[in-house]
Amino acid sequence: MRALFPPRCIACGEAVGSEFGLCASCWSQTDFARGTVCDACGTPLPGQAEGERILCDDCLIHPRPWTQGRTVMHYSGTGRDLVLALKHGDRLDLVPPLADWLASAASPLLSPDMLIAPIPLHRLRLLKRRFNQAAELSRALARRGGLDHCADLFLRARPTASQKGKSREERLANLDGAIRINPRHSGRLAGRALLIVDDVMTSGATLCAATDAALEAGATRVCIVTLARVAKPP
């Protein structure tokens, strides 16, 4: 069967040596967040951390409400292609390999009683897309870590305009009061750590809004993990 149906690169479809892998060309065009990274967003940084907490310029200028954050890769090249394929191309077959990458990136953040939840979509956008890509990733990540998962912990209280092309200030204003804790699950956060999962972080406005809501609901510690980070490479 392997001879008839050889493994294919998850990005371009070329034959590869193992399931759910990337070919050499796509791998070379993927900027994975490895080595020294920002402790708040996961952006790769030059130099050695030597055990101390270091932050990228963006996270220094705009302090984050969450405790720690990681990302899998930079939002460019193959990384961008994979995110868009999952988000807009109905490529649910990408969830298993991408969740494996997320699990690796998130491993320093996880704790035994941690709750995992995705950034929500408004119901109108969910109806249009048919699935929430962040929820698919967070569910698979929780399963890999044997952790509690709540797909609808957060609610979009109102629809928001696309964040694309907006300044940081406009993004924050656009999300003001838009994300809240689902009343049905408000008791699940008290005294617990939370990991929020999203596909892409740009300014961090959406993750900030969700973190603020979680802390108000009693979360003791909030961490974030994203599939990709929009930032300048080191």
Score class of each variant (00 low, 15 high):
135 A>R: 00
186 S>E: 10
198 D>Q: 07
31 D>P: 08
121 L>Q: 06
42 G>N: 04
159 P>C: 09
70 R>W: 12
169 E>R: 11
158 R>C: 11
82 L>G: 09
101 W>N: 06
184 R>S: 02
164 K>R: 14
4 L>T: 11
136 E>I: 01
48 Q>T: 13
145 G>V: 04
8 R>L: 15
10 I>Q: 06
40 A>F: 01
30 T>S: 07
103 A>P: 02
182 N>S: 12
171 R>W: 05
190 A>K: 14
135 A>I: 03
32 F>P: 07
120 P>D: 00
194 L>F: 01
73 M>F: 14
49 A>K: 12
227 L>W: 03
170 E>F: 07
117 A>L: 11
33 A>P: 04
171 R>P: 05
196 I>F: 05
180 R>K: 13
25 S>V: 15
123 R>G: 08
213 A>M: 09
73 M>H: 13
54 I>A: 01
98 L>P: 03
193 A>M: 04
38 C>M: 07
180 R>C: 11
53 R>G: 09
3 A>V: 15
122 H>T: 07
35 G>E: 03
22 L>H: 02
139 R>C: 09
38 C>Q: 05
190 A>Y: 13
86 L>S: 02
141 L>K: 04
155 L>F: 14
112 P>W: 09
28 S>Q: 09
230 V>G: 12
5 F>V: 08
75 Y>S: 01
69 G>N: 03
1 M>P: 08
150 C>S: 02
3 A>P: 02
119 I>F: 01
103 A>K: 11
39 D>C: 13
33 A>S: 11
9 C>K: 01
93 D>H: 13
45 L>T: 03
23 C>I: 09
105 A>C: 09
131 F>I: 13
138 S>K: 04
191 G>H: 08
43 T>C: 15
187 G>H: 07
65 P>F: 01
62 H>Q: 12
22 L>A: 03
127 L>H: 14
16 V>I: 15
210 A>Y: 00
140 A>I: 02
214 A>C: 05
147 L>C: 05
44 P>F: 04
17 G>Y: 06
224 I>P: 00
114 M>T: 13
19 E>N: 11
164 K>T: 15
186 S>K: 12
13 G>M: 10
53 R>D: 12
72 V>G: 10
194 L>V: 11
130 R>A: 10
41 C>M: 06
27 W>E: 14
155 L>E: 10
168 R>L: 14
133 Q>P: 09
106 A>K: 00
70 R>N: 06
24 A>L: 13
